[in-house]
Amino acid sequence: MSNAPLKLLFAGPTGAGKTTAIAAISDFPPVSTDVAATDEVSAMKEATTVAMDYGEITLAQGQKVFLYGTPGQARFDFMWKILATNSLGLIILLDNSSQDPLADLETYVDHFRELIDRAAGVVGVTRAERGPLLGAYFALLQRKGCLMPVLEVDARKKQDVLCLLDAFLSVLEHAELPDERQAS
């Protein structure tokens, strides 16, 4: 992997923990575009991201990773496209206690399929103690022919989010192998 900064995208439905996960690992307080929620989200939380979250983390080898978080609501899908540009991969965060987290996974895999196939993807499942077992996510991904690691994560815990990042970097290294073979 080169030492050029990596752009990593956090996507997923509202309330899955994207803003929290970026804040947990960013080297500085993330740039936030949270505003008061005025729709059904307001029953869950007071503020919601409407443009993006932005943070940075410098890994042990000096590798910088730019962390971008997308807004959760589908009405902001234009931001999903903008933020996915030049991204080297995606972490999909899902709230296991939501109404239908498997449908959420399908939505995000379908939307970001090109990015996942081209680069790398990892799934993080928050509130894993409630809702489907992780095996159900694997089964769905397998059915879609889109194999990605699925990890349980507490978005508030730096160590958990770093594990997710490690998994992403491992997948990314494997994704880079074909190009490296071609180059040699």
Partner: peptide, 17 residues
């Protein structure tokens, strides 16, 4: 209108940031 409303929300929040 709905698209413009969403984009306006994002743009104003980004401008505030």
């Amino acid at each position: 209108g709905s698209r413009v409303a969403s984009m306006a929300g994002s743009l104003i929040a980004l401008s505030e940031a």
